[in-house]
Design a protein around this nucleic acid. Structure first.
Lengths: 210, 210
DNA sequence: TGTATGTGACAAGAAATGCTGTCAATATTC
DNA sequence: GAATATTGACAGCATTTCTTGTCACATACA
């Protein structure tokens, strides 16, 4: 027997291995997807356009992704990861008081959103264009945030954890308030200054914690 | 001069006038649109499918609407009107205390949503599938709710109107909390009982008002 | 009853898009 | 420098969808 006919045709190309090149293309497609999805909307975006933006041809699109849906899910995951990392960093840098923590999280969240409106648009809006079959993508991300808020908030705002039942809804409500305000902030093209938004929400958070 | 060459070929048909028949078709299309959009999602919905659902042919689709977008906007407007009417009724029937009013509004809102999940899906989710060009549709509806909450709440919760600046954001935050919780409730297929959701949000509203 | 108008079924062109295949140019290894 | 893997440009088929047009049948009016 031959040792695996076409097992390792791997070869370095332009200083990169097979795996590196492939994942490089994948990253470029994700970046291009983010840009195109956010610019013209999910439904109007075409595979061709994304490939042009990435400087690749359709052939390489289907090398990494099975469909437009598939790419979008990857793009969205990338966004969630990014905002999650930003929140984590901000939390660790903040003082150890409830207000300081809350402020840090809000600052990081809205800061990240304002820094890159395209990213924000995918994170908050376009994700809802996927249709009934892929709802779970958004739902899971939101649940993630709620759970975080719940566990973090448990120590920050003791009152929250009194009544186990309503705590969950309260957390969902607060996440909802934050996310929704952020969404409308993006939709309004950042009309108000960021600081104003943050103070308003801080108000709400502190009120809910008492 | 002849009195307007092809001015009045109008004629009654099946007991209805020209205008009645036309608006009847329009209504059927809106109803069918609601059903199809909510069932399979905006992007997957096709004009053909909507026409089949309405029991009409494509010809009559283009008689009333210029495009799928156009129809969706009409469907959405219909939903907003419907929920608006329900809220109004509930507000008038409620006792004249802050809690009672708040409770009535939440009850009506979530009641309407639970009664017709398809309607809810369009109202809360599919509307975000429209893409950047038609964002304003959603934005306007949300602003409407916020303004209502602000003016109604001004008398219900005096504290809210103290600081004019933050009041707006607070109102947007509360609307956001309500809408977002509703959205996730729909996405979760109404997992929790409605009453539980309402109590949790009431909690938040009352906390914010103090 | 006959004529004109409204209606619904169907056909079909035009355009867009998803997806795959071909092939010459380029980079790498021997 | 020759052989081969890798790439990128492009053509093109199949499918879907929008959109308009045609025509027989149903309904109303004279």
């Amino acid at each position: 027997m031959l040792d695996e006919p076409e097992s390792k045709p791997s070869r370095r190309y332009r200083g990169e291995s097979q795996a590196e090149r492939q994942s490089g293309r994948r990253e470029r497609l994700v970046a291009a997807g983010l840009k195109v999805f956010a610019s013209i909307g999910y439904r109007a975006a075409t595979v061709r356009q994304i490939c042009v933006e990435a400087g690749l041809t359709e052939r390489y699109f289907y090398e990494s992704f099975a469909s437009k849906d598939d790419l979008f899910i990857a793009v969205y995951a990338h966004c969630v990861e990014r905002v999650g990392a930003a929140l984590l960093v901000s939390l660790e840098a903040a003082d150890d008081t409830p207000e300081a923590k809350a402020r840090a999280v809000l600052g990081a969240y809205f800061g990240e959103i304002e820094r890159d409106p395209l990213f924000a648009r995918v994170l908050l809006i376009e994700v809802l264009s996927l249709g009934p079959n892929l709802d779970y993508v958004y739902r899971e991300a939101m649940d993630l945030f709620s759970v975080h808020l719940q566990s973090d908030a448990a120590e920050l705002f003791p009152r929250l954890s009194e009544d186990k039942g309503r705590t969950e809804i309260l957390a969902a409500g607060l996440v909802g308030a934050i996310v929704h305000v952020a969404m409308r902030w993006v939709l309004s093209n950042f009309r108000r200054p960021r600081e104003e938004i943050i103070l308003g929400l801080l108000d709400l958070l502190l009120a809910a914690s008492r």
